[in-house]
C-alpha cells in the first residue's frame, strides 16, 4: 500500500527535491548490498529494471545537514560530508581530494567568467 502523503527529500544546499521511498542502510531487494551510511533512497527511474535503487542523499556526519550526493553538495570519504564541512576541514582530507576539489573550483570559475 502506498502512503497517502509522499515523503520528500530536499537537499539543504542545492534545493534538489525528490520523493524517496526508503531511508536507511538496507534498501529493499538489494540482497548482498549494504549502504555504509543511512541514505534517502528511491527507485532508480533511469534504470529499465524497476528493482534498482538510487541514493538521493544523506546527512552530513559533522553538521547533520541533509545533503544530496551531487558533487557540488557533498562528498563521501568513509563518511558523508557536506561541502561546507569539507571546505572547513579541507586540510584533513587526503591530497588527492584536495587537488580534485581545487581543480573543480578552477573549472567552475572559468565557466562563470
Amino acid at each position: 500500500m502506498e502512503q497517502t502523503r509522499q515523503k520528500t527529500f530536499t537537499c539543504q544546499l542545492c534545493g534538489l527535491t525528490s520523493p524517496y521511498s526508503y531511508y536507511g542502510q538496507k534498501p529493499p531487494n538489494t540482497r548482498a548490498i549494504v549502504l555504509l551510511e543511512e541514505c534517502y533512497v528511491t527507485k532508480d527511474p533511469f534504470s529499465p529494471d524497476k528493482e534498482k535503487f538510487l541514493v538521493l542523499g544523506s546527512t552530513c556526519s559533522l553538521c547533520s545537514m541533509c545533503v544530496c550526493v551531487g558533487s557540488d553538495c557533498s562528498l563521501f570519504y568513509t563518511k558523508r560530508f557536506c561541502m561546507q564541512c569539507v571546505n572547513k576541514h579541507l586540510d584533513q582530507f587526503p591530497h588527492q581530494i584536495q587537488t580534485e576539489l581545487a581543480k573543480k573550483k578552477e573549472r567552475s570559475k572559468a565557466a562563470v567568467s
Binding site: L36, F76, T78
Partner: peptide, 11 residues
C-alpha cells in the same frame, strides 16, 4: 587515499 573509501556501498 583509496578510491574505495569514496564509495558508500559494500557487498
Amino acid at each position: 587515499y583509496d578510491a574505495r573509501y569514496r564509495i558508500n556501498v559494500s557487498v
